[in-house]
Nucleic acid binder design. Sequence first.
DNA 1: TAGTGTGAATGTTTTCACAGCA
DNA 2: TGCTGTGAAAACATTCACACTA
Lengths: 213, 213
Amino acid sequence: MAKVPSAAISRLVTYLRILEDLEARGINRTSSEQLAEEAQVTAFQVRKDLSYFGSYGTRGVGYTVQVLRRELRQILGLNRRWGLCIVGMGRLGQAIADYPGFSEIFELRGLFDRDPSKITTTFRGLQVESMDNLPRAIAERRIEFGLLAVPADSAQAVADRLVESGIKGILNFAPAVLEVPKEVAVENVDFLTGLSRLSFFVLNPKWREEMIG
Amino acid sequence: MAKVPSAAISRLVTYLRILEDLEARGINRTSSEQLAEEAQVTAFQVRKDLSYFGSYGTRGVGYTVQVLRRELRQILGLNRRWGLCIVGMGRLGQAIADYPGFSEIFELRGLFDRDPSKITTTFRGLQVESMDNLPRAIAERRIEFGLLAVPADSAQAVADRLVESGIKGILNFAPAVLEVPKEVAVENVDFLTGLSRLSFFVLNPKWREEMIG
DNA sequence: TAGTGTGAATGTTTTCACAGCA
DNA sequence: TGCTGTGAAAACATTCACACTA
């Protein structure tokens, strides 16, 4: 199998979202053309992206929405749910826990906060726990991922504790560059990194024209 | 000036964050080597990224933290604050409004929600307003950007209203692909798009090895 | 015949080696 | 001498044209 451009993976998630929308609308046949239009890329791109993983369509006909949806979920590892804990139950942590679609991908298996006053509270049927419970929870509840929604200055310390407890991956919502062993995957999803994308148009006009045209 | 890879811009934000950290620690000289290590890229990359915009260092010596910091802020358009409104004051909207560092970049000039019961509430000294006020607010308060923290199914409708009112750019936190005229910039910062990056390691093991190795 | 699947061409980004300057 | 700045090479990603097949 050929080397897969990493950008292709991100686009697969967009295609999947579109397919789920089509399915909800009762449409069961689509084409690279239609997917391309919805995803705002070219039809070449759609076909190429899919071809890295296999052939899921019918020549001269197109794709069956349900089939392609199932294949993409399988490719993306979204055909199962993953155990996750959230560390930091401030407003961001709470918002994430309640994000629609969140529970399709993750099963919340622990909520942690260092503030003792939060420990009485409950979200989605889970009581917030002390940080002291973290190592045992990760081991005993099959928690594969940890989501960091703590302030930047405690992010590294919390990441260290997750790593020590054997976490597989970290979703980092804190504006900090984390250092972890290379076998632990870190995804920086944090808001300020998001804002770096904003820079394309906040960018000083002197350079903006070069970039956006 | 040469064509600037868009990924380079995102990295500039990381470099800026590192420089601000160095400055806070009282360090005032650095090198491409040091920046590279902190940003987890190569020193070549750092120098190349900076070279797209100019020469800010001293050969044989390195970079002055304060100088480079100022230049990066200038390049990224972060040497001024931008007017912003948030549409959708659910928990996500609230968390974003309170995000540390947020107010360094944006000045909140309006909060909107369609739910009348929210209109009595106040965040950061601003009262939540009815959607009816949106067009006038954008025109009169120099609101350049709109941040969408609404459910996916109303995202397009809200985006349309922002566009009609003359918004310059939209930060889209809703899991929806927006259609807007090309002169309006859209940044998809939404959580599910963030999760697409997660897919690199949630990815079916069959393909993961090809990608991460 | 209509629309997929893919090798080859084109375009973009990163890496590298070294020229250039304090 | 040491570290920046940059053209050129290598790696990577996208676009395209067309072979293929239901």
